[in-house]
Each structure stands twice: as structure tokens, then as C-alpha cells.
Nucleic acid binder design. Structure first.
Lengths: 349, 349
DNA sequence: GGCCGTCCATCGCAATAAAGTATTGGACTC
DNA sequence: GAGTCCAATACTTTATTGCGATGGACGGCC
């Protein structure tokens, strides 16, 4: 059991401000070895997998454990089994190794073509704040890169994404996750916009029936057919027949129509309101608009993995929405079966 | 310019499933070197700092650049300046090196004492969902670790945190950030709870005057003196004189009093309501309750850095709140000058 | 119980990779 | 034109890794 304390002939440790900490014993190659051993179960098998001699691998791990004072594996007969400490280490090993790959790819891209500009599509339904957060993240990660946001309607954006004319796109769900992946970035409640002097304004939540025949839908089927359909489905599910009206994006038009008592309207909770108007949730449902970033799995944009990784940090995942939902990891929950509806499913545990 | 392509004597590359990718050339030591060179400006200085010979460092970087086909530095007279590609790499180098330290520390701790249990304080003001998200994160990172949530009033929790009897604490702001650090986890709007048949329920927002003399405050100065003070300040700032009442935590008591027309009350937007009650925001202000996790800067809990890192991902930072706020990084914005008030300062850019 | 196979640890030795020392050469300064 | 600073290179030394072989521990099998 020799201690592999690096013994440079002449005094090291004193020179500069860098006393060679113990952490330096851990290198990426060790992480690779750990993953291999954990997955193969024996040093012998792991050694062949990572093209190393069995003896070398055995030494490597023993010395690492020794230097770090960690026992990573338990030596049973018949192989190595990972310890609790090793289990946590393994988790990070995988993460770090993947990050290394992503970083190298991205940096190579920056160098080679001074990196291809990141083409980010977005639809009119995406809040400006979301777009700028994404752009900020990108510029923060790649100061010399460039990001080109381009807008378009949902179908067009998705089509261009699929055709690799975009590297990623900010869209609102639902979209068919066909040929691309989705990572959610924000959820925003849908509420009903009514006049303050509307009789129903006295209530904190509007019963679904009260909307029947009054609620106008302004979403344009051409701009986001799936969301439009989904919305109609959801309304139908609550027994609400929407009023027919001409599609528009213009929030002021919508509010004007409500003010003129021509209808009431579904809008986002965060939308700034005219002073005569107010909003109310619909009783018993918890509809939200979900924004997500979509990207091709087989992307050729080297900046993408790191951008996604960073966005995960920047955007909400735990929803501080009225009534608690079970906290979930972003990667598991995304799905386009919500325009969204939350409705009854609060408090599943 | 020899190519340092690792030439194992006998054919490697074919053995297992691990064809030795180019990414393997990048090791943590390279990241250290890159950071050192970038900070020192010359190879010579960097070499002494990281206890390496100048020649070794020069070669190391040259071979790395060569293997990865990246130019990281520009060789000027008088030193090395970093390239755009290097700039991005540098960013990740720092991040990864820090993560390595955090990981090793945490894993060491797991091994040594099978890891000291994580003592997480929380106050009655913290939503259960927040606590369980934190606990989930911990257990996810350290499957064999244990986390002990303990509740207490704010002052007690802070005191025990400072006395190192707790490793971290979930508290609501404001707290004096004295001797410890704070990372926000959630913001939740405060709204006024009123009866549905209250005349003011017809309005979507309540003017501040309408609360005068009617709004009862149930927060207990003993449980969170600073928040209590702050709340009174905020009310005073709006010209609201609160009604005196006995402190209570029990939300049902509060709602019962509102139902009995004894008062109206400030509550969290997400609180489940009795069917006779509703909530309204106060006009012109945007008060929120901010939950944060507090911890000593000189912690001895090795799990803490990785937990904080993970929580950053799990919790909202971009606030999908009514009216956009500028997106900010979590670490910069925390401060206890909000109980919080948002009020006029929306849309600062 | 004895035999065999598997697997990990260890050792000696050889080959390679990495770091050290010393030197060179360019560029800039005075 | 000598001095200085710096990176790069030549050459030497050290450290790491590979290879092959051995031993111990365990379990299965006859």
C-alpha cells in the first residue's frame, strides 16, 4: 500500500499559490474507469472495455481510493460492487463525462467556423422574457458566438426545425414530438378576462357553465393548429361552447372586445390589463400555456447541449402555482398532452 | 508539430466498445493549466503557479490544442491571450474544476461518516412542497445519505444555523444575511382574502385605502420579527393601518375570521380557500413572500454545494409572475429587502 | 475433500508518456 | 547591440502504464 503522494524530487507544494490539492488526483480517466467498472461489474471486463490492462486498472482505482480516502467499490468474490459513496460518485462521473464531451464539441465549433450562428425560432405565443433569457444564456456561454432569433408561426417553425433550418425553437405545447425533443421552460396559467363590472367578477372562480356561449377564442388554427384543437377539446371537456370570432394576436383588440361586452376571453395571467378589466380562473381546472424549447435529437449545433443544460438552471421547474403539483424533474415530465390542463390531477403523490 | 495521437504499441481502438475518443485528451489538469495561463497571462508565470516546468506547460497546451484542433490561446509577444474559443472553454473549466472539488468533498463525507445527516431547518412559513423538493433533491444526489428536516420559528432556526446546529435552513425573507448566505428558491404573491360577497370583490384589484382598518395581520412578531416589521412598514407605505388581532398560523382560523366578516386578511395566493372566500391583489403593489435557503458560508456539510447546485436547477429563477421582471441570475438578486415588494419596479431593464 | 475456474491484488520488467533541465530563437526595449 | 522576456525545442529523468505471471480467496463440481 504505497502512498502515491506525488513526490516531485525537489520541493513542490511551496512554489506558488497552488499547493496541489488532493482533488487533483481525480482525473477524467478515473471517472471513465469508475463508470466502466460499475457497469461491467469486474475489473477484468472493465479493463478490456476501456483498453487497459487489468493490473493497471486495479492499481489505478486502488491508488485513487487511497489518495482520496474513499472506498468506491466493495471487493466481493466475483467482482466489484459499488459502495454508497461510489454510487453518488458514479452519478457525477457520468454527468461530468458528458459535459466534457459537450464542452469540447462546442469549443471546437467555436474555433472552426467561429461557430455557426445559433438559429432560434420562436412563435408569437412565446413571451419576450423567455426569448431574451435564452439569448442571454447563449451569449453568456459563448461570448463570441451569435444567436439569431427568428419568429414564425408554430407549424412553420417546427417545419424549419425539422428541416434543420433552425437549431432550436421556442414553441408552446402541444406539439407532436416527432423527430425532435422537447424541454419545457415555463408554464403560465390561462385565465378568463372579464369586465370588472361583470356580474361574475364577484366570484373568485368562474364556473365553466358561465362561460358557455360567451367565451371567445381568438387563437388562429393556422398559426398553431394543434393548440387550437387542444383548446377546443379542453373547452368541450368542460362543456363550454366557445363563441366564434375572428382570430387575432393583438391583445389590445381582445381586451377591447371584452370591454365592449362583446365577449369574454381566455388570456395569460401575466398579460397587462386595461383598467376596466380583470381576470378570473375557471373553477375546477388549471389550464396553463406551456412554453418549451424544441430541438432535433441529431442536432448539428454544438452549442445546443450546453445551452439546454444552462437553461435547465435558469428556468422554472418547480411550479409555484396555486395548488401544489408534485415536484418533478424537467426531463421526465415534459409531454404535449397539456395545452395544458392541470385540472384534477393536483396532489398526486 | 508531431501529432501526439496516442500510439499504443499494439492495436488499441478495437478491443471493446470504447474506441478512445478525442475527448479523452482533455483532463482536469488541462483545465487547471488553462485557467492558470488565462489568469497569469504567460506560460512562465502559470507554470510556477501550478508547480510545473515552463516547458511542460508549453507542451501540454500545444499538444492539447493540437489533439483537439482548437486554438485556445493566441501567442503574442509578451504572453498568451485567450481566443474566443478559449474564452468559452475557460468558463467551463472553472465550473468543472469547482464541481470536481464539490464532488470529491461530498463523496469523501459519504464515505467517512457514511455522511453526517443533513440537518435542514424550516419555518412554518415554508410550503411543504418546497421542503419536499429539497429533500427529494438530496436523496436523489445521495441515495445513502440522510436528511433531517426540523422545524422551528425563524429566529430559532437562524440561531441554530449560525451555531452550526443546522446545515441549512429554509426561511422566508427578510432575514439579516449576517454570517450566512442565501439562495432564493421561490416567490409567492401575497393577496387579500375577502368574502365573495364583499362589495370589493367586484373589483379585480383592491385599492390600498379599502383595506384600512379592515385588514388584520396574523403574523406573530415572535415567530419572525423582521418579516413582521417589514410587513408593517409595507402597509404603512401604502397608508394602510392594520387591524389588531391575535397572531395565529392556522389558515383555517384566518379564513374563518374572514368568513365571519371580522376582518380581511393577507394570505398567500396558493392557499386553498373556503368556497365562500376569494382573493384579490392590492392595487399598485406586488408583494411576495420569498422563500430562500440559508447556509453558512464556511459550512462543514460536504453535501451542501452540490445540493445548492441542484436546487438551482429545480427551482424557479425566471419568475412567470404577473408582469415581467428582468430575468436575473439567482445568485445576484437575492436580498432581503423584500418581504417582498415588487410594486412599481416592474419593467426595469 | 480435491480440482478447476474466476477474479482481484501484486510484483518484476519493459515501453511509453510526462515532466524536468537546459538551450535556442524571436521580438521588443533601451 | 546587449539585455530581457517569452515560447518552443532538444535532451534527460521520472512516472505511468502495459505485459505477463503469481498467489490468495471463493464457489462450483465431481
Amino acid at each position: 500500500m504505497k502512498i502515491p503522494l506525488r513526490q516531485h524530487h525537489r520541493s513542490i507544494e511551496f512554489r506558488g499559490a497552488c499547493p496541489m490539492s488532493v482533488y487533483d488526483y481525480l482525473e477524467f480517466k478515473h471517472l471513465k474507469s469508475i463508470v466502466a467498472i460499475a457497469e461491467e461489474g469486474t475489473i477484468t471486463a472493465a479493463a478490456t472495455r476501456i483498453a487497459l490492462a487489468q493490473s493497471a486498472l486495479s492499481r489505478q482505482i486502488n491508488e485513487l481510493e487511497d489518495a482520496l480516502h474513499i472506498q468506491i467499490f466493495e471487493r466481493d468474490r466475483g467482482g466489484m460492487t459499488i459502495t454508497p459513496a461510489g454510487e453518488s460518485l458514479l452519478r457525477f462521473a457520468r454527468e461530468l463525462l458528458q459535459t466534457r464531451i459537450d464542452v469540447v464539441k462546442a469549443v471546437q465549433a467555436i474555433h472552426q467556423a467561429t461557430m455557426r450562428p445559433f438559429r432560434l425560432g420562436f412563435t408569437p405565443f412565446i413571451e419576450h422574457q423567455v426569448i431574451s433569457t435564452v439569448c442571454d444564456a447563449y451569449r453568456d456561454l459563448f461570448p463570441k458566438g451569435s444567436i439569431h432569433p427568428e419568429n414564425g408561426d408554430t407549424e412553420g417553425v417546427i417545419k424549419r426545425l425539422r428541416a434543420a433550418e433552425l437549431d432550436a425553437a421556442l414553441v408552446t405545447l402541444p406539439v407532436l414530438p416527432d423527430g425532435y425533443c422537447i424541454q419545457p421552460v415555463m408554464h403560465e396559467p390561462l385565465v378568463v378576462c372579464i369586465r370588472k363590472d361583470d356580474p361574475f367578477a364577484a366570484q373568485s372562480e368562474l364556473p365553466a357553465e358561465s362561460l358557455n356561449g360567451r367565451l371567445a377564442i381568438f387563437s388562429d388554427p393556422r398559426h398553431h393548429p394543434r393548440a387550437h384543437e387542444r383548446l377546443l377539446e379542453m373547452l368541450e371537456g368542460q362543456g363550454i361552447k366557445p363563441k366564434i370570432s375572428n382570430p387575432t394576436f393583438n391583445s389590445e383588440h381582445v381586451q377591447w372586445m371584452v370591454r365592449e361586452r362583446l365577449c369574454i376571453a381566455l388570456i395569460r395571467q401575466s398579460e397587462p390589463l386595461h383598467e376596466d378589466l380583470t381576470t378570473r380562473p375557471i373553477e375546477g381546472v388549471n389550464w396553463t400555456i406551456d412554453s418549451a424549447i424544441a430541438y432535433r435529437e441529431e442536432h448539428d449545433q454544438e452549442a445546443l447541449p450546453l445551452l439546454l443544460r444552462d437553461l435547465e438552471k435558469r428556468f422554472s421547474v418547480a411550479e409555484p402555482r396555486p395548488h401544489k403539483k408534485p415536484p418533478q424533474r424537467a426531463t421526465e415530465r415534459q409531454e404535449q398532452q397539456r395545452l395544458s390542463f392541470g385540472g384534477q390531477n393536483n396532489k398526486s403523490s
